[in-house]
């Protein structure tokens, strides 16, 4: 029995860019099952990031609805949305988005403080999670003293510390070299399998495909194709016969 954790229903997003209006999303609907690893693929400007931000509760759609665990985002006030972002979703960004003045430990602990823990309890939890992602020896370093891969691990620890049901990763390997990127993907997959966390990534990194249960292609603000893992054939230089750009 599969259960739907996230539903996107007819999402549209219109931006006003000066006199012009840009239709970033033109009615996107998608169901995501609990525990799935979903990759959203698409070129820059396809609406991929917009879709990603809206289903993550980081932005509001112009029309349509996001439903997470039976709860419509549109019905929630700003404090309830803060609760959802804190307890249900963990976010990972391409540029890591760590607070530069805080140490690795503090960066993770601040997320735990928002869930209602005292600073000293939060630090204990944060240290344990950082240890799990292999950074137990780097707790007191600020982001500028860490490599890109290490910074992304801190970001993963921060996303994990409140035990979310869903992880949203926006091009998590975009700023990393090949090997570091593969490490990060392995870490995400391990978390997904161990804890039955739903992972949604926006990416144009082909390495991600092998890890995905479902791949969604977005083009021009609409879903061009949804493929289950067994439908995807990967050959060197192409996927499903499409040459990689």
């Amino acid at each position: 029995m599969a259960d739907i954790i996230l539903q996107a229903q007819g999402l549209t997003k219109v931006y006003a860019m000066g006199a012009e209006t840009v239709h970033a999303l033109k009615g996107v609907s998608l169901d995501v099952l609990r525990g799935q690893y979903v990759s959203i693929m698409g070129p820059s400007g396809s609406g991929k990031s917009t879709f990603f931000n809206i289903v993550g509760g980081l932005d509001k759609p112009t029309a349509g609805e996001v439903v997470m665990d039976g709860q419509r985002f549109g019905d929630l006030n700003s404090s309830q949305m803060a609760w959802v972002r804190c307890h249900k979703v963990g976010y990972i960004f391409q540029s890591f988005n760590l607070i530069p003045s805080m140490t690795a430990l503090e960066n993770v602990a601040i997320a735990r403080i928002f869930s209602g823990l005292t600073p000293s309890e939060a630090r204990k939890h944060a240290a344990a999670v950082l240890d799990q992602v292999g950074l137990g020896h780097r707790l007191r370093h600020v982001p500028s003293e860490l490599s890109g891969g290490q910074q992304q691990r801190v970001a993963i620890a921060r996303a994990m510390v409140n035990k979310p049901e869903m992880i949203l990763a926006d091009e998590p390997t975009g700023n990393l070299d090949l090997h570091t990127g593969e490490d990060i993907i392995r870490l995400l997959v391990a978390l997904q399998k161990e804890r039955n966390i739903t992972v949604i990534t926006a990416t144009h990194d082909m390495k991600m495909l092998a890890a995905s249960d479902v791949v969604v292609w977005i083009r021009d603000g609409q879903i061009a194709r949804v493929a289950q893992r067994d439908e995807i054939t990967i050959e060197v230089g192409s996927i499903d016969g499409k040459t990689l750009a």
């Binding site: 029995m1 599969a2 259960d3 739907i4 954790i5 709860q71 803060a82 609760w83 600073p119």
Partner: peptide, 28 residues
Amino acid sequence: MITMNSQPSIPLQTRVPWSVVFFVSWGS
């Protein structure tokens, strides 16, 4: 079979107490 979870409604986010706000600001 696909089901939808019917969750109890979402609570309000926990208020961070002033003492912790002070701690965070002082740290910053």
